[in-house]
Design a protein around this nucleic acid. Structure first.
Lengths: 280, 280
DNA sequence: CACGAACAATACCCGTACGGTATCGCCGCC
DNA sequence: GGCGGCGATACCGTACGGGTATTGTTCGTG
């Protein structure tokens, strides 16, 4: 069977598309890396890379393996972390969620769970957009609150907790601030208040007119300054200040808060937490 | 990072709870296996097994790693298989489902998909209960038709296709065969016609009065012989012969047929197939 | 209580293969 | 045509994975 070392090497080469740089990244010399990849190809009986003297490119099979190998490596990391945490019998649960989102639901959940006689300590990790997902995948978190359709729940077990409409947040005093509702088309047409750009998982930002934002603090400030508007779940209203106005956007997709956990590692504590959450 | 070899070794020991037998299973001698496990424990900084001269038992951390390691090893197998299949550019899709179940839906799906201009060959694998799930997990299949709540869809992406009530199948001429409906309690009370026992994933059978069955052929024959009854989705009626009677069981859980695929490996062919299925 | 069986750990040895250095061969490009 | 960049090849040392033999410990058992 393929070893994780080989997969690590392959991922490095496939991402760099350059044996030299990949070797550097792996803190090793280039020749052994070349050989390791050749060996991997021989063992699989598959050509993974096309090499010319000028460029390295992935074959069809290579890009399949790249996707799969990333999954495997994340699973290995998760296995190590979960094992270590199980041994460090600090019997806590790590819950990850986006900073700012679902705060009311979260505090109700934590309160309700604390009342459970066999509750253990819950460590809450507040992170940026998209991060809870990867924390859950690589074993740094045991359970997460995610928000469909923005977060992908692929590969997790989930329970729906709450669904809500979205609203657009405008600077107080904006001409449209008193409208009873708006459509997404109207929101997109606000060229004076462009929607912000959130980072992608790799840290880069999509192109567009709006300002780059990393968290809700930045966002609310930008809205106050009249540089942006934002479409967000209604419950986030609690985070806002007086100088913001909100207008419902009925045709924006409803946001469902779900509690998610890795399907295999269903510890008692996670199961209790999930049960508590579904009974809120 | 932990190597898959170490995980394979650990799984063998954790399952056998005996270094000698585990070594035998791995086709190696016992001492290197002992050392490998020690090394794994050192690298993780965690005690995985309690050994006395008389018995080997898993620690808490050990049983966590056992679960995680199985997941990792399946993911590695899947990665290898998918890569090989991507290279063997026989651009087919493998669809797994329980033999006998959903046959009408399956043939409609295959017909509809074949009409798609960019359809590729679909290889259908009919298997026993519980198997489609593991085929999907270890990369032998690309997509599967599963049946909730009997099959676990944990860790897959799914789309619901069809929900139906269940019926109890009795030998024709049974005193209750003309009842308009029955409850699960009444079905369970049929001591002359016990429900059959299906194999678990490891191949063993649960205890109980009913006969052991492996497939629907066995089951229908046993029902004909008056040795068993069975609760199954209504659509399976098409598989039955005249000497069977069916009675609806409204309080049995409804069965939902879903199409499932591994969340990461979403090839175009699988996506097309899923889209076709949801539009049936 | 002593002996033996069972079993994991230790000691020791060997071969493979992994990683390093040096070099080659191939291909673009000034 | 020579030079530079890059992956492959050649060659070497060592570390580690695996094998055999043995020890040590702990139960049963006569």
């Amino acid at each position: 069977m393929v070893e994780t070392r080989e997969l690590r090497y392959f991922v490095a080469v496939a991402e760099e598309l350059h044996f030299g740089r990949a070797a550097q990244r792996l803190a090793m010399a280039q020749p052994p890396l070349s050989r390791a990849i050749q060996q991997l190809e021989r063992r699989l009986g598959v050509v993974l890379l096309h090499r010319t003297a000028r460029a390295v490119t992935l074959t069809e099979a290579g890009s399949v393996l790249l996707r799969e190998a990333r999954v495997v490596l994340e699973a290995v990391e998760a296995a190590e972390r979960r094992t270590r945490r199980a041994a460090a019998d600090r019997p806590g649960v790590v819950l990850a969620t986006k900073a700012g989102a679902s705060s009311e639901l979260l505090s109700k959940l934590l309160d309700a769970y604390a009342a459970d006689p066999c509750a253990v300590a819950v460590e809450v990790v507040l992170c940026g957009p998209g991060e809870p997902e990867s924390l859950l995948r690589n074993g740094r978190a045991d359970v997460a609150l995610l928000h469909r359709p923005y977060d992908s729940t692929a590969g997790f077990d989930t329970e729906d907790l709450h669904t809500e409409q979205q609203v657009v947040v405008l600077p107080a005093g904006h001409p449209l601030a008193n409208r009873p509702h708006m459509s997404m088309a109207e929101v997109n047409a606000l060229t004076d208040l462009p929607l912000p750009r959130w980072p992608r998982r790799d840290g880069s930002y999509p192109d567009g007119p709006g300002p780059q934002v990393r968290d809700y603090t930045q966002l609310t400030q930008l809205i106050t300054l009249g540089r942006a508007c934002a479409v967000m779940p209604e419950s986030l209203r609690a985070q806002l200040r007086d100088d913001h106005a909100i207008v419902p956007v009925p045709d924006a997709p409803a946001v469902t808060t779900v509690i998610a956990w890795p399907p295999h590692s269903r510890s008692k504590a996670v199961a209790d937490l999930v049960r508590t959450a579904t009974r809120l």
